[in-house]
Computed example of a mutant assay.
Amino acid sequence: MKPGSEFTAMLEALVIDWLKEASISAVSRFMGLSWNAIDGIMQRAVKRGLARRKEISSTRIGVDETAFKKRHDYVTVLSDQDAGTVLHVGSDRKKANAQSTWYESLTKEKR
C-alpha cells in the first residue's frame, strides 16, 4: 500500500497508464473505482512527479489553451518546448493566472 492510499502501487500505476489512454469516466467503469478514488490516485501521481522534477531551466516556453468536452471550461498549459514537459497548468485561460501562479514563483534570475 502507498502511504495515504488504500491501493497498491501496482494498481495506482495501472490506473495512471489507463488514464493516458482514456477518460476518467471510462477508467472508472473499467476498473470499478469511483471518480474520487481515481482523482486521489491522480493527485498522488502529480505530487510524486513534482517532487522528482529537476530545476526548471527553460529557454523556450510554449503557452496553449484547451477546452474540455467542447464547453467553455478552459485551462492554460505552459510547457518547455525543448524538453517537451509541462511546466504549469492554469485553471483558466487568463494571462493573470499564468503570471500569478507560475511566473511569479520563479526567481528574478529565472525570469
Rank of each mutant, 00 (worst) to 15 (best):
A51F: 01
E104R: 12
K108M: 05
E6K: 14
S79C: 13
L106N: 02
T59E: 12
D39P: 00
D64L: 10
D92C: 04
R93H: 11
T101V: 13
S105K: 06
L50D: 09
D73Q: 11
L14D: 15
M42D: 05
A9E: 13
A96I: 11
G62I: 06
R29S: 04
W35Q: 15
K108R: 11
A37F: 04
F68V: 12
A98D: 03
E21C: 11
V15I: 15
H72C: 05
G62Q: 04
K94S: 01
Q43G: 02
E55Y: 00
M42K: 13
A83N: 07
L11Y: 00
K47I: 10
M42L: 15
K108W: 10
S34L: 10
R48G: 03
R60D: 14
W35Y: 14
L14A: 15
W18V: 03
N97Q: 11
S25G: 08
L106D: 01
A51N: 08
P3T: 11
F7A: 09
E109D: 15
D39T: 03
G4L: 05
S58I: 05
M42T: 06
G90R: 05
S23D: 10
M10F: 08
K69D: 14
D73F: 09
D82H: 03
A51K: 14
D64Q: 10
K70Y: 06
K110Q: 15
D73E: 12
V15H: 12
S28Y: 05
R52N: 08
G90I: 02
R29Y: 03
T107R: 09
E12N: 10
D64A: 07
L87G: 11
F7R: 14
A67V: 11
F30Q: 09
R71Q: 13
Y74T: 03
K2H: 07
T85P: 02
I38M: 06
D39G: 07
D17M: 14
A51R: 12
R52T: 13
V75P: 04
T76M: 09
A51I: 00
S105D: 04
K70M: 11
H72E: 12
E12G: 00
E65V: 01
S58D: 01
G4P: 01
R111W: 08
E65G: 04
V63E: 08
L87N: 03
E65N: 01
G32K: 07
W35V: 09
I61G: 04
R71K: 15
K69W: 03
S25V: 07
